[in-house]
Write a protein that binds this DNA or RNA. Structure first.
Lengths: 206, 206
DNA sequence: GCAGAAGTTTGCCAATTGCGCAAGATGGTC
DNA sequence: GACCATCTTGCGCAATTGGCAAACTTCTGC
């Protein structure tokens, strides 16, 4: 998810990327999507407008990239796990842990972005694309770990889809309920539990 | 998925929408995304350029909308099913059937669009958004059928995510393998089977 | 059927954006 | 410290976006 090179150059690039994304997020939060121009974002992020498009194709994409990434952390943590564990199990724990480790600020941005993309449908494709990219990344790792092929075998893609699905659904529910932070890991655990049970019927009907 | 009104007005709108989407798809297939302008698409669809943006926000979104929708058919079929069936089971069958019923032409468009969105990353967000919208629609129906709330309970969203996941993964694998049409329903069945088994480990390792 | 309401299409137009190109700046390498 | 690769930026043009109001089409009630 994060560029993998390690030099100063990569770091700067990453910083610029975050600066742009955060500027975009903040501005859109303040003034509404339609009242924010790329020029403004560029100004706030101390880059030229031309540079903006080296990083993002549009405002929406930038906004959605705001907040330090959860995804890359999960992927790295996955590589630490023993290869013989059932991947869905490993990932369930990793995702729950990753979410638990987020700062309040980070969680607030997650929630904020979700609310924004509900308010502005134009953002929704970019939000979806982020999860999709994450899903692909997970799929690749699972494939590597299990000796399967992402493009050919169904297994790695399915595991990846199920994991991101659980994450999306739990976060959506958490944001909707406006629940306190402790609730999110619980919801996630619950989601993975339901998945493991095969989703026969709605769990506790309230 | 399809506009729900029934008058002549709705029908025309739907036709216009399809005409635009098909024109966009065809042009992009022929000339490549970067060499197609909205003006051209509008011309080929017999509308004014201005009208294009009443339907789609950009070329990419239009291309991805091409081909008659599978999704709405699945949703309608779901409503015919007895409410007491496990939803994941109903949906598994419905999706397999829906795919089996597609014409060769329709399947070709599905495959073509997927290939295009691999070739042009700018299309990918819109492809993802389509599945996301489908997922939401499924979630709503499941919620209605099971007396749960999509926004609150995890169950309906999880079922929906799993279903679209299976569909996406199976289609991707099918397209990648360049397999004959009979293979797609088989892959889908397999995907739902693996899901039902809880994805413990890769099924047949080839 | 027909008059008025409601919704769509279109042209016009200004502001914004997308992006190729080439020059300058900056980090990486030996 | 010299050379190379990469990133940033300004310039400029073509494409796109989106508000507005006029012309048209469909819908509704009578």
């Amino acid at each position: 998810m994060t560029g993998s090179g390690t030099g100063l150059r990569e770091i700067k690039k990453q910083l610029t990327r975050e600066a742009i994304a955060d500027a975009a997020y903040q501005l859109v939060l303040d003034k509404g999507l339609e009242n924010v121009t790329i020029d403004e974002i560029a100004q706030l992020a101390f880059i030229s407008p031309r540079t903006f498009s080296n990083y993002f194709s549009c405002k929406e994409e930038a906004v959605v990239a705001a907040g330090s990434p959860v995804f890359s952390g999960i992927l790295e943590a996955l590589d630490e796990r023993p290869t013989d564990e059932p991947p869905l199990h490993s990932l369930g724990e990793l995702v729950v842990d990753a979410v638990r480790d987020r700062t309040d600020e980070q969680l607030a941005v997650t929630a904020g972005k979700l609310r924004l993309s509900q308010r502005y449908p134009a953002m929704q494709p970019y939000e979806a694309a982020r999860y999709d990219a994450f899903e692909t990344a997970i799929g690749e790792r699972i494939a590597a770990r299990t000796g399967t092929e992402l493009a050919t075998d169904l297994y790695p893609g399915l595991v990846a889809a199920v994991v991101t699905g659980a994450l999306r659904v739990a976060v959506a529910s958490w944001v909707h309920a406006d629940a306190p932070r402790e609730r999110l890991p619980e919801l996630l655990t619950e989601a993975f539990q339901e998945l493991a049970d095969g989703l026969p019927l709605p769990a506790a009907s309230r």
